[in-house]
Design a binder for these strands. Structure first.
Length: 262
DNA sequence: ATGCCTTTCCCAGAAAGA
């Protein structure tokens, strides 16, 4: 069994104790993380290596930052992808994508731009970014090698992926162009590995810190695992670990866990 | 209960998140 997971940490520095605890408790073989919020060389690699993992990090100072944490090998690391747009211009690149080979698996950890509001330049950037990552990955998705694109996509693929669609009219994350961009990404031959919810009917992965949204069940499913046929056919279980959203100083995202029998 | 926002810059308050 190989356990794959993705988790937006909202600062690896602040979340380090919880990250180490979660690695020990959940024992993923490969964990992709987002929003490390530290410079490339400031990731707490020693601490993570201390619990038996290798780390590849693509970071920048204050925002963004993605990493792959693996205990089944970590080779052929790629930081960013060819044709990756930047913001506010392409000369200003952000650390939002890292790819690696972990044992039998090729995997990418993505942190898709937020978009802010539909009339914000950041929204157009988000759509360009999704189109570009799709183009870039086209040649890498093979039917036979297990392959996954995981992370924080900042898109709720359907109305069932937000607590109340009425609250999202005119917002980002649910607009048709964003959802279509995810459809196009899946059209490379990737399927959305739909997780079990550990509580309730919706496997939400994000709850805003504000207004007690977690307490009120106001979540969104914006983090997911897209798997090619070779990986999808091997899935034995998938769930959102909402317990990781509880307690003191949690991230605002919960990990998505996928077990495969390769 | 799962609890009213949190993190970064850095030391004050703005920017960002989604």
């Amino acid at each position: 069994m190989v356990r794959i997971a993705t988790w937006n940490l909202n600062s690896v520095t602040t979340r380090l104790p919880r990250l180490l605890e979660w690695l020990e408790d959940s024992a993923p073989d490969v964990l992709c993380v987002q929003e490390t919020k530290v410079a490339e060389d400031k990731f707490p690699i020693d601490a993570v290596e201390g619990v038996g993992y290798q780390v590849a990090h693509h970071g920048q100072g204050r925002w963004n930052g993605v990493a792959i944490i693996s205990r089944i090998g970590l080779t052929d690391v790629e930081r960013g992808f060819s044709g990756q747009p930047g913001f506010p211009d392409d000369a200003t690149q952000e650390a939002r994508a890292i790819g690696a080979t972990c044992g039998p698996l090729r995997i990418w950890s993505l942190y898709v731009p937020n978009g802010r509001t539909p009339d914000d330049p950041h929204y157009a950037y988000k759509l360009r970014w999704l189109e570009a990552v799709t183009t870039s990955l086209k040649d890498e998705v093979s039917a036979t090698t297990p392959f996954a694109v995981v992370g924080d996509f900042n898109v709720a693929p359907t109305d069932a992926d937000v607590w109340d669609p009425a609250d999202f009219v005119g917002s980002t994350h649910v607009s048709e162009p964003e959802r279509q961009a995810i459809v196009e990404l899946r059209a490379l031959g990737l399927s959305d590995v739909f997780p079990r919810a550990l509580k309730g009917d919706h496997p939400f992965t994000f709850w805003d810190y504000r207004d007690g949204n977690f307490h009120k069940g106001k979540g969104m499913r914006i983090d997911f695992v897209l798997a090619n046929a070779a990986l999808q056919s091997s899935v034995t279980d998938a769930y959102v670990d909402r317990n990781a959203r509880k307690g003191k100083a949690p991230s605002d995202h919960a990990p998505v866990v996928v077990d495969v029998d390769l």
